[in-house]
Computed example of a mutant assay.
Amino acid sequence: MVRPASARGRQRRERGSISVDEILRGAFEVADEVSIENLSMPQLARHLDVGVTSIYWYFRRKDELLDAMTERVLLEYDMSVLAIDAGTWRESLRAHAHRMREMFKSNPIVCDLILIRGTKNIPAARTALEKIEQPVAALVAAGLTAKQAFDTYTSVAVLVRSSAVLQRLQSRSAEVHFPREYWEQVIDAEAMPLIASIPGRGYRIGMADDGNFDHILDSILDRAEAFCHNS
């Protein structure tokens, strides 16, 4: 239902004529344009062409709205792990790590809600831990102890999450995009001849790029492989 046009010609929906699903869909649309951090209730109301009280009727605070958005993400996005095969555990775990990182990289809102903001939802946390059981079991079958398997998988998970978050933060900050000329002035070939001799000349220092991600990931997998050989 739409109210009659006001003196200024604007039409606004009646309170109660909007649903939770419409509010959440609109919230994701606004967040996609301005980010989760800059999303506001008045801005969302304007986007939906309703009075802000229509939003507060369902969500009294922005935190409540963000909680609902997080639950919707957990429900609709595929957070499942790729099955880890004991016979090819290294390759399958590596593929899993890349898949999860790519999912967070390609979905900034998912990264902001799940990794940066987080959730205290107990059922969601339980579901996440249940999904870890399978890869841990595969690593145990490959020769690791339960603790070694758990530590290996959670280390990979921390790497994926931290890399995705750092890359997300870097993408939101113009200051991290230093031009090549900057590094050419920073790197002194006489004071740091080894770094200056490396292709890239230090441009990747502190960056959450593919090269640094793979280097750390392979180090974790090398350690796990050593556990297998020593068992």
Rank of each mutant, 00 (worst) to 15 (best):
I122V: 15
R117H: 04
L144D: 00
F178I: 09
E14Q: 13
N38F: 11
K147S: 13
K105C: 09
A95C: 05
E22W: 06
A149T: 04
L217F: 04
S54H: 03
F178E: 12
N107G: 02
P193G: 08
D67Q: 08
I195V: 15
L65T: 03
Q148L: 07
T152H: 02
P179E: 07
I220L: 14
G51Q: 11
E181V: 10
D78C: 06
R161S: 15
V176S: 08
A141K: 12
I220K: 02
W183H: 12
V20T: 15
L113K: 01
F59Y: 15
P42E: 09
E22M: 05
I114V: 15
L65R: 00
N107H: 15
I216R: 05
G9Y: 10
I220H: 01
S54T: 09
R8I: 09
R46I: 05
S106L: 06
I122Q: 11
R3K: 14
Y77W: 10
E22C: 07
L113I: 04
Y58H: 15
S17D: 14
L129S: 11
H177D: 14
T127Q: 12
N38E: 12
V34N: 09
I205P: 01
R12H: 10
A125D: 09
S19I: 12
G202P: 04
I198V: 15
M207Y: 07
G26C: 06
E29I: 07
A146D: 14
A189R: 12
E130G: 08
Y203P: 00
D188I: 05
R90V: 08
R61T: 15
L217R: 00
M41T: 11
T154K: 08
Y203C: 04
D214V: 10
L66I: 14
A149Q: 03
L44K: 04
A191Q: 12
G202C: 09
S171W: 02
R12L: 13
H215P: 01
H177N: 14
C111T: 13
A97S: 13
I220F: 04
A146I: 12
I195G: 02
R3L: 15
T88C: 05
R161H: 13
L217S: 02
R25M: 09
V136I: 15
A7F: 10
P42Y: 08
D209I: 06
L82I: 05
V165M: 14
E175M: 11
R10F: 11
N38P: 00
A224N: 02
L159S: 07
F213R: 01
I205E: 04
P123E: 08
A196D: 11
I114Q: 01
A7L: 13
A45T: 03
P135I: 00
I132F: 13
I122D: 11
V110Q: 02
L66F: 09
W89H: 00
L44Y: 02
R172H: 06
A142K: 00
R90W: 04
L74M: 12
R201P: 00
E76I: 07
K105Q: 13
V20G: 04
I84N: 00
P199H: 11
A68P: 05
R180Q: 14
D218V: 03
W89Q: 05
L221V: 10
R15E: 13
A86D: 06
A137R: 11
L74R: 08
R101H: 08
V176G: 00
E76L: 14
E71Y: 06
R204Q: 11
M69E: 06
G16Y: 07
R126K: 12
E181Y: 04
E175D: 14
L217V: 05
I187P: 00
E184Y: 07
F59P: 00
E33F: 04
